[in-house]
Amino acid sequence: MTAETRSLIDPQATATAADAAEPLLRTVDLTRHFHLGGILSKQTLHAVDDVSVSIAEREIVALVGESGSGKSTVARLLAMAYKPTRGEIYYRGRSVHSFHSRKDLLWYRGQVPMVFQDPYSSINPVFRVSHGVMRNLQLHRPNLGAAQRREEAARVFDVVGLTPSTDMLRKFPYEMSGGQRQRVGFAQALAVQPRLILADEPVSMLDVSIRAGILNLMVDLRERESVSILYITHDIASARYVADRIIVMYAGHVVETGPADVVLARSKHPYTQLLLSAVPDPREPISVSASPTIGEPPRVVNPTEGCRFRWRCPVAVEECSRVTPRLRTLGPAHSAACHVATADPA
């Protein structure tokens, strides 16, 4: 692993970020709270708290968590759809909050486009599927002439496997299957020559037999178009399949991060272990470790100090209800936010 792909999760590493190669994108203490109820209400939902992550060039990072863990909020923060309550996002070393002009914002959105979860509602049904791609090209690459735009649209359709592209570009969304529509989503993102694609649960609405194709497409795009991908998912098995690195979120916090294979083989955080034990795998005998009554992730409203997983945690100690655990390095590029987890033996 190169210095560039090294995780910059732990705070010590951010101090040395200046001399290490700057990653493509990096967040520092990214936080987003939502006010709940009327104007007199003092309730605040902590959707994302102090998330510091980095994504290197040509890296596929999977952000894994259950619903309500804050993973989609992170994607929206990175896409500048939400303003962070606190914290910074650095893109190639520049803080995105310094982008104010339309030109800068357009440039950033072209560099970091998003692919949405639902291919049935994220494409405008009244236009041919070429519409989204052509519009993106017009907006983000104004120096292209009409003929060049058509050429480029055909190229990105070819890249995402919508062939023959001349026929496919003329179709309406209703003429396409879910898998094909999701490919249109990726083609739209590709048209703007992105460096990082934010893919928010791109396969969860698709049929099982179609999913593998989209997962393979993501791996393929990294190879052929040299893009990085933030793959947001609740399915840790698919995360392992496509990603170099996995970041596990729970209730707004990053609880574990590390190389995909290491996180799966030697998971440190009890939540990651719980997630892994819950994955149904017909090739394995059923495990009976987890009790059936373990609950669901909490909505983090006005949280107090302490680990947010402690109510469901089988190994919680007294300290967990007093002190919020910080990410600690427990192995090479592998860290977890748990008081109980122990480091790899040296």
């Binding site: 037999s209 098995a237 399949y241 795998d281 394995e284």
Partner: peptide, 15 residues
């Protein structure tokens, strides 16, 4: 069509 969390990573073909 679906990836496993166990064993070696292998390429999925899907349908």
């Amino acid at each position: 069509a679906f990836p496993s969390i166990h064993g070696p990573r292998r390429v999925l073909t899907g349908i």
